[in-house]
Simulated scan of single mutants.
Amino acid sequence: MPFDPHTAPLTAEEARVLATLVEKSRTVPDSYPLTLNSLASGCNQKTSRDPVMQLSDGQIQEALDNLRRRSLVTEIGGTRTSRWEHNFPRGVGVPDQSAALLCLLILRGPQTAGELRINSERWHRFADISSVEAFLDELQSRSEEKGGPLVVLLPRAPGAREQRWTHLLCGPVDIAALAAASSSSAAPAPTRDNAMAERITTLEAEVASLRHALAQICEQLGIEIESNTAGN
Rank of each mutant, 00 (worst) to 15 (best):
M1Y: 10
M1S: 15
F3Q: 14
D4G: 10
A8V: 10
P9W: 03
P9F: 15
P9N: 10
L10V: 14
T11C: 04
T11W: 04
A12C: 05
R16M: 14
V17E: 04
L18A: 08
L18R: 06
L21T: 15
S25P: 01
S25C: 00
P29H: 02
D30T: 02
Y32P: 12
P33C: 01
P33S: 00
P33H: 00
T35Y: 13
S38E: 12
S38A: 13
A40T: 12
A40Y: 00
G42S: 03
N44I: 01
N44Y: 04
N44Q: 09
K46I: 14
R49I: 05
D50V: 07
Q54V: 09
L55D: 03
L55V: 08
S56N: 07
D57M: 07
G58Y: 06
Q59H: 05
I60D: 05
A63S: 14
A63V: 04
A63G: 03
D65M: 01
D65A: 08
L67Y: 08
R68Q: 14
R69Y: 04
R70W: 04
L72D: 09
V73L: 06
E75G: 04
G78N: 01
T81H: 00
W84F: 06
E85T: 12
N87K: 10
P89S: 13
V92E: 06
V92F: 12
V92R: 11
G93R: 07
V94G: 11
V94P: 08
Q97L: 01
L101D: 03
C103E: 02
C103L: 00
E115W: 01
L116Y: 07
R117L: 09
R122T: 15
H124Y: 11
F126S: 09
F126K: 11
A127H: 12
I129D: 08
V132C: 09
D137T: 00
E138N: 11
Q140G: 15
S141L: 09
S141E: 15
K146L: 13
G147W: 01
P149D: 11
V151K: 08
V151Q: 05
L153P: 13
P155A: 08
R156C: 10
G159K: 07
A160K: 10
A160F: 13
R161F: 00
R164N: 07
T166Y: 00
L169F: 14
C170V: 08
C170D: 06
G171A: 04
G171E: 05
D174L: 07
D174M: 13
I175P: 06
A180S: 14
A181K: 00
S185D: 05
A186F: 02
P190F: 01
T191W: 10
R192E: 11
D193L: 15
D193S: 15
D193K: 13
N194I: 07
A195Y: 09
M196Y: 02
A197I: 03
E198W: 03
R199H: 06
T202V: 13
E206K: 08
S209I: 03
A213M: 12
L214I: 04
A215T: 05
Q216N: 04
C218A: 13
E219Q: 14
E219W: 06
Q220M: 13
I223G: 06
E224M: 04
N228Y: 12
T229E: 07
A230Y: 01
